[in-house]
């Protein structure tokens, strides 16, 4: 089958244009230099906020694989964050604090949840898919809230951040910030490779014209489920980082509002470019953070901004900047 891959009649190449790529480099450089500002503004607060932004950006990137490339609007992506975070927290409580144990276990847990729920969800389309993913996320939310041995609704405090080969280096906010940044860059590059690969092109082909792809012999459900599992594992990786960032895990990590926020980040950025999701996540979170410092009633400004944004810039920031990942 691999022989046919080069002949796929896709409308447009999936790879983001150089301009998008450049924006990515600029963002990563800016983030890398951000800790230099710490002595002048906010101190560790800046690092904490920055880490949180990047962690949610990782989750948004993985969601873009589903929404932008797969056409699968998952309204339950926060569940993967929660599952990764709980896996990390539960392991830590039982004394497994090494990152090389916590990360694979968290990602496997996310992948497994994605595999089981995805196998059912993939059977539906459109809004039915949105709602069934929400349903599974809500189930996970209530299950975590009922784990009385691990704090139930109140959540679970981690004894410490994950260890790196016995060292507590991640305790330093600066080190942790750079660890998150490194993860963000790795995830971005890996997803770029993935969407440009044969797998990624089939996934987009399925979004554009499912019947044609199926007629060519590609199994829609197989490809979409694989994408769902990959996105779930990356979402759980973000969960691992979030648990470490706050040293606390609670069902509040996986509310449907959080899933909604992630979708909003991807849409603001413009789905299907990856860098769009990155920009969208950072824009959404900085606007939220910035406006909430200006006034308590910041949503009075933020809400109409979103409406105006949609009317003025359909297709998100990415389309607005002229990036065209797909038609």
């Amino acid at each position: 089958m691999s022989g046919e891959a080069g002949a796929l009649p896709l409308a447009a190449p999936a790879v983001p244009r150089p301009r998008a790529w450049l924006v990515g480099v600029v963002i990563f450089c800016a983030l890398a230099l951000a800790p230099l500002a710490v002595p002048f503004v906010g101190g560790n607060y800046l690092l904490l906020i920055g880490s949180r932004f990047m962690i949610l950006a990782i989750a948004a990137l993985s969601l873009d694989l589903l929404i932008g490339y797969g056409g699968l609007v998952s309204f339950g992506h926060a569940a993967f964050i929660g599952i990764g975070a709980y896996a990390t927290g539960i392991l830590a409580v039982h004394g497994f604090t090494e990152f090389y144990i916590a990360i694979p276990v968290a990602m496997l847990a996310g992948a497994l949840f994605a595999l089981v729920t995805g196998a059912v969800a993939i059977r539906t389309r459109g809004v039915y898919f949105i709602m069934i993913t929400l349903a599974f996320a809500q189930m996970a939310f209530y299950v975590m809230g009922s784990l009385s041995a691990y704090g139930g609704d109140d959540g679970l405090t981690l004894p410490s951040r994950s260890l790196v080969f016995g060292s507590a280096a991640l305790k330093s906010e600066t080190v942790f910030f750079y660890a998150v940044l490194a993860t963000l860059i790795i995830v971005t590059l890996a997803l770029r490779r993935l969407v440009a690969s044969r797998f990624g092109r089939v996934l987009q082909g399925l979004r554009q014209n499912r019947q044609r792809m199926e007629a060519m012999g590609y199994s829609a459900q197989g490809f979409q489920l694989t994408a769902y599992v990959i996105a779930g594992a990356i979402g759980a990786l973000a969960g691992f980082l979030l648990a470490n960032s706050t040293e606390f895990v609670s069902p509040a990590f996986m509310t449907w509002q959080r899933s909604g926020d992630l979708i909003i980040m991807v849409i603001i950025g413009g789905g299907g470019t990856l860098y769009g999701a990155l920009v969208g996540a950072l824009a959404f979170l900085s606007l939220e953070e910035g406006l909430s410092h200006v006034t308590d009633h910041w949503k009075l400004i933020f809400g109409p901004l979103l409406v105006l944004f949609v009317i003025a810039a359909p297709g998100g920031i990415a389309r607005w900047l002229g990036w065209r990942a797909h038609e």
């Binding site: 909003i264 849409i267 809400g303």
Partner: peptide, 19 residues
Amino acid sequence: RDHLDQLLATFGIILFLNE
């Protein structure tokens, strides 16, 4: 518009009206 734009705009309206 596509559904995603509709989601975003109506979400903005929720934020505004709740507040």
